[in-house]
Structure formats: structure tokens, C-alpha cells
Simulated scan of single mutants.
Amino acid sequence: MNAPPAATSRATALVAVGIALVSALFFTCTYVLNRAAAVDGGHWAWIASLRYLITLPLLWLLLRTQGASPVWRALRASPGPWLAWSGIGFVLFYVCLSAAAASGPSWLIAGTFQLTVVAGMLCAPFLYPRGDVRARVPMPALLAGAVVIAGIALMQAGEADGALDAQAWLAVALVAVSAFAYPLGNRGLLLHLERVGVELDATQRVFGMTLASQPLWLAIAAFAWWRAGPPGVEQVALAGGVALGAGVIATVLFFRATGLVRRDPTALAAAEAMQAAEILFATLIGALWLGEAWPRGIALIGAGVVIVGIVLFSAAAAHATSGKPRVLRARRGDRGA
């Protein structure tokens, strides 16, 4: 069955892109704090599980003003899809990202994860039913994604200063899996909610996926305790920072952005692609606050290419929605599937 026509205005598309860009700023803390925990001797399983174990009560407090009852009803009605998509979009995503932190530097992880700018688009033909407009890969967005990836590759080449060793290549492989798992889990849950006609806002969706993933996180935490003993105070503190910055603020903003344009494949791809700005934010923060060197030579050129790609994504989203009706349906916003 074909999806309902997209009802996304140009303004809505650009708002979604802006929100996603802000989410990328908060996501940036993940790489630095995870790498700090790994260098300090923290086990990857603790790095992964602590974030989501801490995120759950934070989201619960946030939802007290909005109500968690709709989430409980949705979980009880169809626990299978929630378990599956949270297992992919949260557990597989973050286990791979955390394990990579023990194998490679933060710049390598941050850069490789930007494969996510095309991951959602490439997964679309396998996720949406035949005939659904979202199953088609939007070529303008794909070309803009190729520009972003080319820029990131230049930045990576400037940072690498030579061949990568086996551990670094392992980190690249793990982060590549993570980059596909995150948008796939988000899109899969949006599609499930659409099919069953359940309306949940961004915070409720994040809370539901965090809650559904808890059995797996508890199992991973038990494994971490068995292999490395209890986590240290500093590791818990670092995980708390990631939980607040990335697990709550960034994830809710990202889910809101993708929810706003969930029926428009080009605008959805553009919102997902704003995660590419993470490598720019990481570079800027490192230079201004950590005293790291500013990118030079090929890395500086790469940063410029990434910025061009982000602008192209925004232009593609605005152009794709320019011909759509100005009057949106009553169910606008990020509510619904």
C-alpha cells in the first residue's frame, strides 16, 4: 500500500534540518567522553550499558509532565517490534560504537560514523513496502551525501597521517555497523507506529525504545561486571554526561526532527544527514577548548567540503518541498508514526 502523500512545507523541512543540526552538537559529546572512559580503562560493555541505564530514569522524569501511559499501551500491544527496533537502533548501534572507542581514536570514530548520512537512504528500499514513495532513494540527497562523505574522507586522511593499523580498521568496521543501525532502528519504529496507527511524540518514542532495550542492557551490564568488576565513579560520571547530552537531549531532538518530515524521503534524508556536522563540532571543540590543532591542508579542505555538502542537503530538502501544498494536515508536527 502506498504511503499517504508527503505534507511537508519548505519551512517545516528547514526547521527539521535545524533541529537535527542542534542534535548533532549534543551528540558530539559521545565520542570525546567515550574515548576518555576507554583510555581510562573502562570496559566497553560498561561504556555502552551505563548510558542507557542512566538515560531511562532521566527520560522518566522528563515524561512525568507529558505522561508515559501511551508508551506503556503501545509496548503491551506489540512488544515484538519495540524489542526488535530498539535492539537494532539502540543496542547494536551503541555496543558497536562503544567497542570502537576501545579500538580507535575519537576523530576516527566520529568521522566514520558519518556514513549515517547515506545509511538511512540506502536502507529505505529494503524497509518500506514496494510502491511506497519512501522506498525510493532520493538522488539529490544521495549526491549531497556523497559530497559530505568525500569531505569527511579528506578530513580523515589529514588526521590519519599514515596507514591505519588492525585495531583502527576494527574500529572502522564496528562504527560502520553502528552508522547503519541507528537510522534503521529509528525508521523501523516510525514505520511500525504508522502501521498500527499509534501517535507518540519524540520524547515518548525515545523513552519507549530505551525501556524496551533494558533487558539487553542489563544482560550487557552483567557481562561487564563479570569481566571487569563494578564501574568506577569516574566512568559512571562520564556515562552520565553522555546519557544527558546524547541519550536525552540529542536523541529527543533527532527523533523530533525525523518525525517532522517522516513522510518526505528527501527531507528525512537531509535531517539524518545533519549528523555529519558532528565531526565539525568535534574539531571546533577540540581546537577551542582542548588546545588541539586546527585542521590544515587536506583536512581543512575536507571540512569545507563537508560544509558544502550540508548546505546542499538543506537546499535539496527545501527544493523537494517547494512544490507541495502549503496547507498541511491537522496531524502535523512530529506526532504520529
Rank of each mutant, 00 (worst) to 15 (best):
V172W: 04
A219F: 00
A48S: 13
A179C: 06
G232I: 01
V133N: 14
F180W: 06
C29T: 15
P183W: 10
T116K: 08
Q235M: 12
G241T: 08
A135I: 02
G89N: 13
A36C: 05
G197R: 00
A77V: 01
I249H: 14
L21E: 12
C96G: 02
S9I: 02
V206R: 04
P231H: 08
I279C: 05
A150P: 05
A320M: 05
W226T: 03
T12R: 07
G247M: 14
G145P: 04
G197E: 09
R130I: 08
V236M: 12
L50G: 04
V196Q: 14
A6I: 00
R51Q: 14
A124V: 01
R10W: 04
G323P: 05
A228H: 06
W46I: 03
T210F: 12
F126H: 07
L164Y: 09
P70V: 07
A337T: 13
L59R: 02
A303V: 01
P70Q: 07
G197F: 02
L268N: 14
L189D: 10
V22F: 07
K324Y: 15
P70L: 10
G240L: 02
L61Q: 05
P4V: 01
A102Q: 12
V148Y: 14
T258R: 08
A101D: 06
A269D: 01
D264W: 09
L216W: 13
S106D: 02
E234A: 15
V236F: 03
V32Y: 15
V118T: 04
D334G: 01
H43T: 01
L218S: 08
G302Q: 12
W60A: 14
T321Q: 02
A171L: 02
Y128F: 14
W44A: 13
E199D: 04
D165S: 03
G208H: 09
I149S: 09
V233T: 07
V172P: 09
Q114G: 12
L216S: 13
A135C: 05
A171C: 00
R256H: 13
L53N: 03
A166N: 04
F113Y: 02
G309R: 14
L33I: 03
G197I: 04
L253M: 15
A282E: 13
A102W: 06
P4G: 11
A38N: 08
G162S: 06
A219Y: 04
Q235C: 00
V233Q: 10
A74P: 14
R73V: 05
L244T: 00
L268W: 11
L190D: 13
A250P: 07
M139I: 06
R332V: 06
A24T: 01
L164S: 07
G41D: 06
E272P: 00
A166E: 08
R227V: 12
V71D: 12
S178V: 02
V311P: 11
P140F: 01
L218A: 08
L75K: 11
P265T: 05
M1S: 08
L328K: 14
L184F: 02
Y52I: 03
V118C: 03
R130T: 09
A221P: 01
R130M: 10
T55N: 13
